[in-house]
């Protein structure tokens, strides 16, 4: 059964004599129990989609159904079944993580006992136990974000909208959050996750969609997206090579103060031999989801000019 069905969903923001089309005829379905990823650069339309699907924003045209209920026509029925981590949300400054989780669960209708036991569970799983009784105003940004995410992941909502839930968290905390997200899915929740961490999307999602300029460019598994890149291996040289020298081996990008070449397995040996002859360190790895994403949306995007192809 489909948990979410969006049909020809469009949204145009108007104001100040300008109009911006944030979503352009988006068709999307998410199956029940799926952990679905939404990738796209800033302003691509991810948050707009989530806000409409969660009943927080009206679409310009098109429809979204959640578990068969129209979100625009029946927002109350839909809201009863969802929970959302908003992008850049922040907890109450005067409440502790434990209070956040317990009070939020009770506001959602859980009993005091259930709220307490779930709070214990989720605070432990997300590494918040040592800070459970510290007011949020004394917590770091990452811990505050974890508190907000803990509130939502402690619920038994059937559909979870997680808009960049691990923003600002350290790698350890991110992995703890991933585990709790996986547990929610195991318990029957459907999750729509947006993230700029492509390793997160690769680790977590069953399927993902890449959105660009309000349109869905790709929908499929992370592996299938990676296979869209013709090259299989990426080599990064911090120095010692020019873009012209590397160009015959594949696509070359300026990256992290050096050069990265995307190439085939067959050419790796030749390139590493050249690097060894010049006594240059080389970093070799498989093509990542990030490479596939950048290839799909195009590297020559304004915000990432530094990674525009050189050759």
């Amino acid at each position: 059964m489909d948990a979410l069905v969006a049909h020809s969903l469009s949204k145009t923001y108007r104001g100040g004599g300008r109009s911006v089309r944030a979503l352009d005829n988006v068709d999307l379905t998410i199956a029940q129990g799926q952990l679905f990823g939404f990738l796209g650069r800033n302003g691509a339309g991810k948050t707009t989609f989530i806000k409409i699907a969660a009943g927080l924003l009206l679409p310009s045209s098109g429809s979204v159904q959640l578990f068969g209920t129209d979100v625009v026509a029946h927002p109350r029925e839909v809201r009863e079944r969802i929970a959302i981590v908003p992008q850049e949300g922040k907890p109450f400054y005067h409440l502790t993580p434990r209070e956040h989780v317990e009070e939020y669960l009770q506001v959602r209708g859980a009993s005091s006992e259930t709220s307490k036991s779930r709070a214990d569970e989720v605070l432990k799983a997300m590494g918040l136990e040592p800070y459970a009784r510290t007011p949020a105003m004394l917590l770091s940004g990452g811990l505050q974000q974890r508190t907000l995410v803990a509130m939502i992941l402690a619920t038994d909502a059937e559909f979870l909208f997680l808009d960049e839930p691990t923003l600002g968290m350290d790698p350890f905390a991110r992995r703890q959050v991933w585990e709790v997200i996986r547990r929610s899915v195991r318990n029957g929740s459907t999750v729509l996750l947006t993230t700029h961490y492509l390793d997160e999307a690769e680790q977590l999602t069953d399927e993902l969609a890449v959105i660009e300029g309000g349109r869905v460019l790709y929908r499929g598994t992370p592996d299938a997206l990676k296979s869209k890149v013709r090259r299989e291996v990426r080599l990064h040289f911090s120095s010692g090579f020019s873009a012209e020298e590397l160009a015959p081996f594949g696509e070359v990008y300026a990256e992290r103060g050096g050069l990265t070449v995307m190439t085939t397995r067959a050419q790796v040996e030749e390139l590493t031999r050249m690097a060894l002859e010049r006594k240059i360190a080389v970093n070799v790895g498989p093509v990542t989801l990030e490479e596939a994403f950048l290839t799909l949306v195009g590297r020559d995007i304004e915000e990432e000019d530094s990674e525009a192809p050189l050759a």
Partner: peptide
């Protein structure tokens, strides 16, 4: 804080 959104989507 975006907390109104958190509370009303419930």
């Amino acid at each position: 804080r975006q907390l109104q959104q958190v509370f009303i989507t419930s």
